[in-house]
Design a protein around this nucleic acid. Structure first.
Lengths: 218, 218
DNA sequence: CCGTCTGTGATAGCATGCATGTATTCATGT
DNA sequence: ACATGAATACATGCATGCTATCACAGACGG
């Protein structure tokens, strides 16, 4: 059973941001759909101001497209854009895992294991939103473990993109078929062994397969 | 003589954004300095709203730090952060130039030459702001020539960071000493020759030296 | 003398109203 | 029927006022 835990946020703008991402991942919003400020503001019980901020933040992550004086619409990435995004992601994550392999702390190795356990829970529950969230965590922990904050920031950005794209592009995405968890375990092992080459290779393979899976249905 | 051409902008928020970047590059603002919304709003003759938007955009580029309920301050990057930023930049620009080497259009090759000519003008005038702007252009054109828009977007972001950092970190940055233009010419030649390996190698070297130059004075 | 608590000032967060620009619709003419 | 144009409805951009929160200073107690 799914318990909707209370979302944590510091400001209304942050709340709207999270809520919009939630609605994207749960397919309540469709690619290309218009996102009028008032509309969202009323639905979420806030004024237009925090909505504007949230929309602009999402725009910086490539999830919405804002045209000045005209408004915001949800992104509708082409296959090409998806491939482009994954190309960038591969670069960032490979360098990320490469550095992490030599620097990762014991604590973060444990966090990695925890994330994998959570992935298995999400897998068991067949809860896509939860699954995407913890999947994101796995990659986030590795990025943080690189010790390079700018890199981590960029990875964070591109994780937001790709996770949304998964939902946009693949409405029937089946987590049962996805071998990601096994790949994550392998990457975690390589990191524990401080095997840089192996970790990079596995990560590259993992991302290539993710993209491949994504391209199948559409 | 320097003619201040009228800045083009579509919205007030965009104007404030550009004006703030201008003030950063012309050293009117100091690293770590507080940036109260009202303060800026009054100075620029607009209300707080567009200022907020501009500040948040700058925050997404790592140029300002926003603490909720507390306010914005100009970034004050440590040497470590600078190195981290350049590490990311190297990844992005190397893949960028690598792809561009096989795809770049004749038109963009000409734009590249134009950019280099402008760099020489800026060099002759010893105009740091102008120089940074056209330097940015050179790298921007290469990123665009990759044909990967997401990549170009990320490069754009990191260019904003590094160019600001130049000013932050190196108040006496001497464009006369900087061998960048010669390196840019070499990169352009490699691109014309479609020599992928060479272009990447030159770009990597170029960025390494840029970072090295930056680290000298501080 | 130092730590803690409290009040006061200042600043960001948010709501709202007005102005401006855009999109849609409908009428008009060819 | 189609293209063109004006009018209208609507959404965004911006300004302003109010409220909540934070930072700092001074008072109080240990």
């Amino acid at each position: 059973m799914m318990i909707m835990e209370p979302r944590l946020y510091t400001t209304s703008a942050d709340y709207v941001y999270q809520e919009l991402r939630h609605r994207i991942v749960t397919k309540q919003l469709k690619p290309g759909q218009r996102l009028p400020e008032v509309n969202i503001a009323v639905q979420m019980g806030v004024s237009r101001t925090p909505v504007r901020e949230a929309l602009r933040r999402l725009a910086s992550e490539g999830l919405v497209l804002i045209i000045p004086n005209s408004g915001a619409r949800l992104a509708s990435p082409t296959r090409r854009e998806m491939e482009d995004t994954y190309a960038v992601r591969e670069q960032l994550e490979c360098i990320s895992v490469s550095i992490a392999a030599t620097r990762i702390s014991e604590r973060n190795l444990r966090r990695l294991d925890d994330a994998i356990l959570e992935e298995e829970n999400a897998f068991a529950e067949k809860n896509l939103e939860f699954y995407l969230e913890v999947n994101e965590n796995f990659h986030r922990i590795i990025a943080e473990s690189s010790g390079n904050r700018v890199l981590a920031e960029f990875v964070e950005n591109i994780l937001a993109r790709t996770n949304a794209y998964v939902v946009f592009y693949d409405p029937f995405y089946d987590i049962a078929e996805n071998p990601s968890i096994a790949q994550h375990k392998a990457i975690a092992l390589a990191l524990k062994a401080k095997d840089r080459e192996k970790a990079v290779e596995l990560m590259r393979e993992h991302l290539k397969l993710s993209l491949f899976d994504l391209k199948k249905p559409a």
